[in-house]
Design a protein around this nucleic acid. Structure first.
Length: 488
RNA sequence: GGCCUCAUCGUCUAACGGUUAGGACAGCAGGUUCUCAUCCUGUAAAUCGGGGUUCGAUUCCCCGUGGGGUCACCA
């Protein structure tokens, strides 16, 4: 049997990093076993629907490299879908749910409930006051068929509730083992709402079955409603899939990761210049470890080593400092072309750099970046040298005369150097190092004033790199300006 | 509060029932370097508590404690 997993978000806005990890694990598991991974949109709550979030979801999944075999896709800006088990959007499957709800009704496994929201709210608050468990009191179970018919005729709104049988429900969680709960603890769950839409519980069971899902991988918050789903599988006569409930991703205070305490949207991290590769790597290791001392895993390696039984049971704090470290690692080591693709949006377009310049700037600056967003302020130096005080040109172990001397000498050295030298970082370094060695100067005496003359900054890329990016003409110009600054 | 669930350095984690409890990030102290960023070396830092089982528990069992999740016509 082919393994089939799914990621089933509700279109309520952005993609949460917790959801990203859920999607990732489902993806990894499916790919590891040469299985199928699909996306399904769970939009059964019309009130929470956010326009455009399906499109946004597709974009993000594409960006981070989570490819899926079935589900909604964007074609020329239009939403369509691929796969043989559609529709993959629950609001387009209403009749299916209604049909199955009807079946349950006929089986006597479900019943119509005409209770008003007001009555239910009062019931709940009374129970809370009496410190009783809050459960529906089954008032409508006693309704005889004649009364039901007259209320139906009067078009009274109703819901369909699951009739929880007596006994206990047990299921195996692939990560935690056996979980048992007394059925008396379970409320008679609403399956079909007054508006004819199913609730999550009904829809998820039917769709997972109809779409052939073999492994239900989702977050831990679903664990307490899993018994309802197991009951439904049994009532429908569906074979039970495997369940795996993933530990939560936590705020630093150990509560469920939420807004307020930082960014939770994958889009936000991408916008800030975190690489998709780094995000995936980081989030993958939050709750999973292939065993070993490695930290860096690319997607293919994650697929290769993924194992549900090695997923942790306890929640993991989202540690931004470690993400930062990992992002730095990726910026340094990723293929230059890929880095340029990712970094392109972070260049200030008004500076009009050529592609060649951008490549050099990126090559030089990537050593010092934590996120790609950090690139933006650094690029300005290559366009216009910032204002700076001439004192800055003086190295801590030298004086103004010394700085002036070296700058004048370097200016001359540059002037006499062949043009082609300036196209090669190593040659530039040779040129300057030779000047230092021949005269037995200290590096700092020469390199500090040169670097400041070129960057105008106390902290910047190295002087060889700066010359390489700026080119002969601009480098000489900046050195000359520094000389004038000292003389003035 | 009921139910479910979890528990190794600050954080992410490793450890067939037998290890000086390992690694990574962050921290601290040095070193390399013209600056920042790197890089290198070193250092501190953990098995929640109590009972069992066992020759031997981080590991298995029980109880406690603590954390988290969930208790909607939201997912």
């Amino acid at each position: 049997m082919t393994i089939k997993t799914r990621f089933a978000p509700s279109p309520t806005g952005y993609l949460h990093v917790g959801s990203l990890r859920t999607a990732l694990y489902s993806y990894l598991f499916a790919k590891k076993h040469n299985g199928v991974f699909l996306i399904r949109i769970e939009d059964t709550d019309r009130e929470r629907y956010v326009e455009g979030s399906v499109e946004a979801l597709i974009h993000v999944l594409n960006k981070v490299g989570l490819t899926y075999d079935e589900g909604p896709v964007l074609q020329d800006g239009h939403l369509t879908e691929k796969g043989d088990y559609g529709p993959y959007t629950q609001s387009k499957r209403l009749e299916i749910y209604q049909q199955y709800a009807q079946q349950l009704l006929e089986q006597g496994s479900a019943y119509r409930c005409f209770c008003s929201k007001e009555r239910l709210e009062k019931l709940r608050s009374d129970q809370q006051l009496a410190k009783l468990p809050t459960k529906y009191d089954r008032t409508c179970v006693g309704l005889d068929s004649k009364e039901i018919q007259t209320r139906l005729d009067k078009q009274e709104p109703f819901v369909i509730r699951l009739m929880i049988p007596e006994g206990e429900t047990t299921f195996k969680d692939e990560i935690r083992g056996m979980i048992t709960i007394q059925n008396s603890e379970i409320d008679d769950q609403v399956l079909l709402k007054t508006d004819g839409f199913p609730t999550y519980h009904l829809a998820v069971v039917i769709d997972d079955h109809l779409m052939g899902i073999t492994h239900v991988i989702r977050a831990e918050e679903w664990i307490s409603s899993a018994p309802k789903h197991v009951l439904l599988y049994k009532l429908f006569g569906f074979p039970l899939p495997s369940f795996a409930h993933l530990p939560l991703i936590l705020n630093p205070d150990k509560s469920k990761l939420s807004k307020r305490q930082g960014d939770v949207a994958v889009e936000d991290y991408l916008k800030k210049g975190y690489l998709p590769e780094a995000l995936i790597n980081f989030v993958a290791l939050l709750g999973f470890n292939p065993s070993g001392d490695r930290e860096i895993y690319r997607m293919a390696e994650l697929i290769d080593s993924f194992d549900l039984t090695r997923v942790n049971k306890s929640g993991a704090v989202f540690d931004l400092t470690k993400l930062n470290w990992m992002n730095k690692q990726y910026i340094r080591s990723i293929e230059p072309k890929r880095l340029m693709d990712l970094a392109a949006p972070f260049f200030d377009e008004t500076l009009n750099f050529s592609l060649d310049q951008k490549e050099r700037i990126l090559e030089v600056e990537k050593e010092r970046l934590t996120t790609l967003q950090d690139l933006s302020p650094q690029t300005h130096v290559y366009h216009t040298i910032p204002e700076f005080d001439k004192e800055l040109l003086i190295w801590k172990k030298a004086d103004q005369q010394d700085a002036l001397h070296h700058l004048q000498q370097l200016e001359m050295t540059f002037r006499n150097a062949d043009e082609h030298i300036f196209t090669d970082r190593a040659l530039i370094e040779d040129l300057i190092k030779k000047y230092i060695e021949v005269n037995q100067y200290q590096n700092g005496n020469v390199l500090w004033p040169l670097r400041v003359a070129l960057s105008g900054q106390a902290q910047s890329a190295g002087p060889f790199e700066l010359v390489w990016v700026l080119g002969k003409k601009e480098s000489m110009k900046r050195v000359q300006q520094a000389i004038e600054k000292i003389l003035s």
